[in-house]
Simulated scan of single mutants.
Amino acid sequence: MTPTVTLVRGDITRRSADAIVNAANSSLLGGGGVDGAIHRRGGPDILAECRRLRASRYGRGLPTGQAVATTAGRLDARWVIHTVGPVHSTSEDRSGLLASCYRESLRVADELGARTVAFPAISTGVYRWPMEDAARIAVETVRTTDTAVEEVTFVLFDDRAHEAFAAQVG
């Protein structure tokens, strides 16, 4: 099934969805940008679960392109799906890893039974992925991934991101 794709400009921590995707760093312990905002607004329960994951399955951190879920804490969601996007490189094609973030997040959402998922523009902040290319990969991957998720909302922080994604959604 192909989910309905919608775009909104705004703060992903203020969205209501079954699952909110966090553009996490591999430590799973919070950081800047979307990651820091999700941890701050979601509260200490998210960090506590991330610490448990680090102490068990992900002692070396969550690998780039993979995804794992925790509680959503105080966010208006049931779960946060953490995924680690790749740092953009001009000398190495890492687009498969970026696509994997979306595919793996949808796989985890399916395992959880999530029907609505909110995504940020993964890797477009401090990881410097060019917005237009990130939007192309994100929308194409969501549209071609077999999933039971019914609605994907891309929550975009500014007008530039919204315009790039709108050009891909059509």
Rank of each mutant, 00 (worst) to 15 (best):
A109E: 08
P130S: 07
R94F: 02
S26A: 14
S100R: 05
V21I: 15
T124D: 06
A24R: 06
V68E: 10
G85I: 05
Q66V: 00
G170E: 15
M1H: 07
A161D: 15
I122N: 05
C101Q: 03
E49L: 04
D146E: 15
V21Y: 07
V8T: 15
R15N: 03
Y58I: 07
I12M: 02
I46V: 15
A109L: 07
R78K: 14
T2Q: 12
D110V: 09
D76N: 14
D76C: 02
I12C: 01
V84E: 12
R94T: 13
R160W: 00
R9S: 06
E49M: 05
A167E: 15
A69W: 04
L112A: 10
G33E: 09
R14C: 05
P63R: 04
M1P: 00
R40E: 15
A166Y: 01
G43W: 08
A109F: 04
V5C: 09
A72Y: 03
I122W: 07
D146C: 01
V126E: 14
V142Y: 07
T147K: 01
V84G: 08
D159S: 13
T90P: 01
Y58T: 11
D35A: 05
D45Y: 01
F157T: 12
D18G: 04
G33T: 12
D18H: 12
V8I: 12
N25G: 11
V21T: 06
P130N: 08
L47H: 12
G85L: 07
N25P: 12
I122D: 08
G125M: 03
L75N: 08
A161F: 00
L112F: 10
Y58H: 13
A99I: 05
R54C: 15
P3E: 09
T116D: 10
G43Q: 08
A118S: 13
R60Q: 14
A19M: 01
P120Y: 03
A37C: 11
P63V: 11
S105H: 02
T83A: 08
E132T: 11
T6Q: 07
S16L: 00
G96T: 12
L106D: 11
S105R: 00
R54Y: 12
H39G: 11
W79M: 09
G125F: 02
D18E: 10
T4C: 00
V117I: 10
L97I: 00
T6W: 00
V84N: 04
A99E: 08
P3S: 09
G30L: 08
I12L: 14
A55P: 02
R74W: 09
L62A: 08
S26V: 01
E132H: 05
Q168T: 11
R51M: 13
A19Q: 01
M131Q: 14
A148G: 12
Q168N: 07
V149E: 11
D76E: 14
M1L: 01
A148V: 11
T90G: 01
Y58R: 04
G73H: 11
A121G: 07
